[in-house]
Simulated scan of single mutants.
Amino acid sequence: MKYLVTGAAGFIGSAVVERLTQMGHSVVGVDNLNDYYDVNLKLARLERIEHPLFVFEKMDIADREGMAELFKEEQFDKVIHLAAQAGVRYSLDNPLAYADSNLVGHLNVLEGCRHNKVKHLVYASSSSVYGLNGKVPFSTDDSVDHPISLYAATKKSNELMAHTYSHLYNVPTTGLRFFTVYGPWGRPDMALLKFTHKIVNGEPIDIYNNGDMQRDFTYIDDIVEGIIRIQDVVPESDPSWTVEEGSPATSSAPYRVYNIGNGKPVKLMDYIKALEESLGIEAKKNFMPMQPGDVYQTYADTIALFEATGYQPKVDVKQGVDEFVKWFNQFYQGK
């Protein structure tokens, strides 16, 4: 089977490409290799997944003509769309970057799927869409109409755009709301890698809301397993579904949205403690107030994904952080 994976040089994208090629699938990966964070890390990920079944194309998904030509030439069976401008805090200062990648880019992917009869589009949404929701665990049955960052708003928009294409053009789409992914080869803008660099260099780490936060930390291998499983579960139309009685995560169209997370929120201070123990260094801590756009807690209800795929995360935070630190020491040599 031939796949397109967007964001192929990214944290999750590169891991998905590696898994697909190991399974014997042909993969074309696209990524614009932008400088949102260290390009050398992205290049190293691509080097790691070199494989005869993998072809890399440097391309921006916001390139309308380029994406249309790629879809036409390659005739993909399935698409796993992970490219996006990420980061809640970055969106506070750089909002226009999110319009280009997360809105225009997503539309170009949808158009490619529409015009080339792609069998299934799996795309990245985010737990940030839950915004001001106070009820936990976060359920895809709940309304997500009150995002508190532009990043979250673009991800909710991705779901709405996907539904439109599923309804109008019968494109099967599945959105995955990711919950705090971590592990080896992770992004430098995320807490784990930022904390680790600072701790080993003897610098204080910034801890928001005075450490009183919880996150549904999900290890990268568990995330990849969920993606691989769900791409085989192609949504089907359900003529009996109604807006009044159906879940917002389902539809009369071939459209589905799932949470993908660990389902067990961990206190931020326990996460930091696991990192300190793995590194053998106590962190210098700089406690700060809550950052705009942040939420106090994320907690995934993953029952729907389990029922659809049998997906169950296996890696706990201690094991996951240990694996991350092993990689960090090897890749950065403790620097």
Results as ranks from 00 to 15, higher is better:
M213F: 00
M213Q: 05
M213G: 00
M213W: 00
M213N: 01
M213H: 01
Q214K: 13
Q214L: 10
F217S: 04
F217Q: 01
F217C: 05
T218M: 09
T218N: 12
T218C: 15
D222C: 07
I223K: 14
I223Y: 13
I223R: 13
V224F: 15
V224R: 15
I227A: 07
I228Q: 03
I228F: 07
I228G: 06
R229N: 05
R229L: 13
Q231I: 15
Q231G: 03
Q231T: 12
Q231K: 14
Q231S: 09
Q231A: 03
D232T: 02
E236I: 03
E236G: 04
S237Y: 00
S237L: 00
S237Q: 03
D238F: 04
S240E: 08
T242F: 13
T242H: 11
V243E: 10
E244C: 07
E245G: 14
G246W: 08
G246I: 07
P248T: 02
P248G: 10
A249S: 15
T250Y: 03
T250K: 08
S252P: 00
S252I: 03
S252W: 08
Y255F: 02
Y255L: 02
R256W: 00
R256S: 04
R256V: 00
Y258D: 06
Y258H: 12
Y258V: 00
G261M: 10
G261D: 11
N262F: 10
N262T: 03
G263R: 04
K264A: 03
K264N: 08
D270H: 15
D270W: 14
Y271I: 12
A274Y: 14
L275W: 04
L275K: 01
E276M: 12
E277V: 13
E277N: 15
L279M: 13
G280M: 09
E282D: 06
K284E: 07
K285I: 15
N286M: 06
F287A: 02
F287T: 08
M288G: 05
M288A: 10
P289T: 15
M290E: 15
Q291L: 12
Q291C: 06
P292Q: 03
V295C: 09
V295S: 08
Y296Q: 11
Y296C: 01
A300S: 14
T302K: 12
A304S: 10
A304E: 14
L305C: 06
A308H: 10
